[in-house]
Nucleic acid binder design. Sequence first.
DNA 1: GCCGTTTTCGGCCCGACTGTTTTCAGTCG
Length: 576
Amino acid sequence: MNKNREIAQIFETIADMLEVLEENRFKIRAYRNAARNIMELGDKIEEVEGRGELQSISGVGADLSRKISGYLETGKIEEYERLKERVPPGAVELLSIQGLGPKTLATLIKKLGVRGLSDLEKVLDGEEIKKLPRMGQKKIEEMRRGIQIVKEGGERIPLGAALPTALEITSLVREMPGTLDAVITGSIRRMKENNKDIDILALTRDGGSVIKAFVELPIVREVHAQGETTGSIITGEGVKVNLRVAGPDSWGGALQYFTGSQAHNVKLRILALSKGCNLNEYGVFRGENRIAWKSEEEFYEALGLEWIPPELREDRGEIEAAAKGEIPDLIQLADIRGDLHTHSTWSDGRYGIEQMAAAARDMGYEYIAVTDHSPSSRIANGLSTERLMEKKKDIQRARKRVTGISILFGAEVDIKSDGSLDYPDDVLKELDVVIAAVHSGFNMERAAMTARITAALKNPCVHALAHPTGRLIGTRAPYEMDIDEVIDTALKHGKALEVNSQYLRLDLNDINTKQAVDKGVKIIISTDAHHTNQLKLMGLGVGTARRGWLQTKNVINALGINDLKRWLKTPGKLSA
DNA sequence: GCCGTTTTCGGCCCGACTGTTTTCAGTCG
């Protein structure tokens, strides 16, 4: 079990409990802040504790580090145990219900003895609740709807699903009379892998009527809020969409504010205060004077910062880097010169080699590797050695028929449980590109899985490790393995790790990518396309990689074809 | 409870919208 997650969740729950008890709000924030940083920590917290470095974690001081050590030793945190007696843990979970906050929950616990969801449902149907202060019929209805949403799952929307929907709604907004422009903001602009809602900002001089048109769109199932500057709706599909409007006189401030993240914005505001400024969604102010508002660049500059790409705005060191002028030159979609992980009808793809190659060429790529599955992947119609050699002939044919792109002969080769590969080395040597991947036996023990994967990385025929952690967003946890050791092994043997762009994978994720990048490991960003359309998923991988602070110089498939071929021959030898 | 480019003490982000009020508390982002 992941101790980072356990501890982060306990700290979050403690914060919730303290909120219900109306404790000092800065203490509450301290718990939340520490929880977030522990969650995002690349290292395992046991190891940090072992090195005696808990207090190097941002937001963890003397007291919280003691609590963490105590938890690792005994499995308990005393304060948490004490709090559980005062605030029923089942009741705390009710805070995830929209419209039900800490104050209301405290009253419900105190006056009506609510200890969990079923209690709340009963109470909402009763008469007693109506006697509570500030409690009317609408409030009760709002909580009922909130319960419904939680029961429906209230799940986060994966980026790959959120982005197209957000684009669609944004273009509807852009077409509204009086709208000058509309853009996606919020977590989707930051390319987060999953998203609670969709945030859109419209540029207009007539906010009220744009908001009015927005809440009247046919896609709207329910209007959550409607004001002069903000509208909030639930779509027929149950997705929450927030629209914010801003005029040209505050565009930069609004764009910055509405892009977040919250942690990034809070830190910026503290920085502004230290410089004698104030900031809000209308701009940067010095006393009564507004000193920046037009653009994000101007906004950041007023605070003495370089402009920060949205993907970095998570309070993971980007503000400090921007102050020093050290924001990295992040990889962009346009820097990608080819796709090194795709499938064809030879295994489980929908299109032949020629069609995949032509589609890649039409996207402006210089090369594509068609990397079908190996024999152990039976379900995916993996290729026997014999069929692999037939495929080689097909590749050669395709090279003649589809010009303007280099077609590389590749395979996505299973890493078997013992760490050996699914083709013998003399077959692997025939291939231009060898991507190794785990497709079975996910539930191995940590040490065994680590050994299995590192063994594959040590094979001189292997170029890269595909979807290194095996996680599926919202479905399957990463394999138990030592990611640090995998990264170190890749570095030592000059092998690349993949950022897979399939939207339930995005694997490596942002944090693991940053760990790998910080150590100097090369990355391939690939689509794993099983369809010509899926070649377009590259943007999701690039977005994830940017969140991992990935620079063009670290990306193998940002190399031109000649440099790529050189690297493929001797992956360990390429200099940065 | 954390933290330091004026600080080891005294700070800690800011505004919009709703519902239940009659001036604002609660919630959200």
